[in-house]
Nucleic acid binder design. Structure first.
Lengths: 231, 231
DNA sequence: AATGCATTTGATGTATACAAAATCCATTTA
DNA sequence: TAAATGGATTTTGTATACATCAAATGCATT
């Protein structure tokens, strides 16, 4: 009873700054706020119905996360994300996915395996209906399950950070049927390696999987660049 | 001339929040602010001679970095860092060091090799005089040189973050002569592997090097726990 | 003496006020 | 006509004021 009240309160209570933080973050990641766009405190405050204080505190967090950059005496603007930034992030993420796969090999139990299998299957269903939103969701679920299995909180934290950094570029590239099937295949392979408890193989597949993504995203960006230039 | 003025201004101008951020961060990492200690805004503001606003914004960043945790309606307190946290961080760092070593293998030039050699030598000199401060400095320099050689900004950023997370626990364990010699030896081995451009070997040594550190720090903490209990 | 309730204190969360800097636009001058 | 200058406007950086909540204190009652 006491725990119930307590946990309720935790979920219930959210400072405005955290709501603003999540709101702005989502807006940046979905592209609603475009790279280079200025984040003006009063304007955002009016839009969200809060004062400058929570806005500023949210911006401080976004700043540390690298989603916005501060120009002295000019305020915040949405960070530009170059191709190199994406490659850098994915290079690191590949290493972390490999690490996660290695650790998960030791620690995953049947329940976790079933979770992975479910995510894979639901991904497949979504892919058939070209429901990209759900596909991404299930893809995230697949990787999240592996990271959670490591029980390494720092690793999980970094994964969440890196994942979101490239999120905006993943939204669209899965629309390509070829890519989406490749993702499916690689997920199956990884699950298999994990079940075999073959650490080296799992590491290898996990890293390669991200490298594949990197190539896909790069291709996607290059195409998009051409498209948006026409607009 | 214009560039000069400009760059001067960049270095010259620092918002109070950033000064406060760096100050508090250092205080936490050096242990001046102890784990569990509350960070009260008014009190800190009086101490540092600023108002609550910059204090709060600094705390938001420390919060995202994981150095302080927020208790709803109770404010910030210095994060407790358990043994598991250290192990988690070092497990991740080992993977990142391995990645850095692999990439550095491809990219390091003679100048970088000389920098490493210099750091190693200066470390050795400092070790002879039991100048722990300089030893740590040179150790950091060694690893930093490798990470910088990767030219992967995200990797460098994460390294800086992880490095600082365990900094407070490294201050003392190098005092042990045996540990300090082991560090020296492993640095030499890594430099050798890098010069050979042997990626697999370099990865391996780099990861093992951090694992060694992890074991040392754990041993150090266990000893310290006994000591501080007596106090 | 212990418990329960009211008051008070003090801290956080949020909003607003003020100052300095940067930007923009119009006017002026060469 | 183009460049420069000066003031108005806007925005950030910082400080302070107000509201809300939590815990502590103290007093009264049992």
């Amino acid at each position: 009873m006491i725990e119930d009240t307590y946990s309720m309160k935790i979920n219930e209570y959210l400072p405005l700054r955290d709501i603003v933080f999540q709101t702005l973050r989502k807006a940046i990641l979905t592209g609603e706020l475009e790279p280079g766009e200025r984040l003006m405190e009063i304007q955002l405050g009016e839009k969200l119905g809060v004062s400058r204080t929570p806005i500023r505190e949210a911006i401080r967090k976004l700043e540390l996360e690298g989603l916005v950059i501060m120009v002295p005496r000019k305020g915040a603007q949405v960070a530009q994300f170059t191709e190199k930034d994406i490659q850098d992030v994915l290079e690191v993420r590949a290493a972390l996915e490999a690490l996660a796969a290695k650790i998960a090999c030791k620690r995953m139990d049947d329940r976790a395996f079933l979770k992975l299998q479910l995510a894979i299957t639901e991904y497949e269903y979504a892919a058939r209906e070209k429901d990209v939103e759900t596909m991404i969701e299930k893809d995230v679920e697949f990787h999240e399950t592996i990271f959670n299995a490591t029980q390494n909180d720092k690793l999980i934290q970094l994964f969440n950070n890196l994942r979101e950094q490239v999120h905006r570029y993943r939204i669209a590239y899965l629309k390509n049927v070829g890519e989406s099937e490749l993702v499916h295949t690689e997920h199956l392979e990884l699950l298999d390696a994990l079940k075999q408890r073959n650490e080296e193989l799992a590491e290898d597949i996990a890293a390669k999987h991200i490298q594949t993504q990197c190539v896909s995203i790069m291709r996607f960006i290059k195409n998009k660049a051409v498209i948006t230039e026409e607009e």
